[in-house]
C-alpha cells in the first residue's frame, strides 16, 4: 500500500527509477492506486491552469513606463545614509563638548561650595 507522500514523490518525479517502475507495475493491476495517481496529476495540472496570458505589448509598455520611473540606487542610498550618520555623530560630539565646556564653571563652583565648611554645616 503506497502512502500519499510516496505517490506525490512519484508524480513529482522524485522517486528512484526502480521504485517508480514497481509503482507503475502495481498501478497497472490496481485501479485504486491508478485513481490516486490520476488525482495527484489532476491537482498538479490545475494549480496553474487558467492563468491569463500577458497581453500583447506588455513588455514594451512596461519599458516605456520604466523610462520615466525613478530608479532606487541602493548603493548610493547606503552611501548617503552613511554620510548623514557620520555628520550627525560629529555634530552630536561637538554639541556635547560645547555643553560640557559651558557647564564646567558651574561644576567647579559646585565642587567648591561642597568643599566649604559652612555648606557642610
Amino acid at each position: 500500500m503506497y502512502s500519499d507522500d510516496q505517490i506525490w514523490r512519484y508524480v513529482d518525479g522524485l522517486m528512484e527509477a526502480g521504485d517508480a517502475q514497481r509503482l507503475e507495475q502495481q498501478a497497472e493491476a490496481d485501479e485504486e492506486l491508478q485513481a490516486r495517481i490520476e488525482q495527484c496529476r489532476l491537482i498538479r495540472s490545475e494549480v496553474l491552469a487558467g492563468a491569463p496570458e500577458p497581453p500583447p505589448g506588455f513588455a514594451a509598455e512596461l519599458a516605456r513606463r520604466a523610462a520615466a520611473a525613478p530608479v532606487l540606487d541602493l548603493e548610493e542610498a547606503r552611501r548617503f545614509l552613511k554620510r548623514v550618520l557620520v555628520a550627525a555623530a560629529v555634530l552630536a560630539a561637538v554639541g556635547l563638548a560645547l555643553l560640557a565646556m559651558e557647564a564646567l564653571p558651574e561644576i567647579l563652583r559646585a565642587e567648591e561650595a561642597i568643599a566649604d565648611p559652612l555648606f557642610r554645616r
Partner: peptide, 24 residues
C-alpha cells in the same frame, strides 16, 4: 544602469511565468 531595452527583454523572458505564479 537604467537600460529600458534590457528591461523589456527581461520582462519578455519572464512575463508568462510571473503571470502564472501570480495566478497560482
Amino acid at each position: 544602469k537604467g537600460d529600458t531595452e534590457a528591461f523589456r527583454q527581461i520582462v519578455e523572458k519572464y512575463e508568462r511565468r510571473v503571470f502564472a505564479l501570480l495566478y497560482g
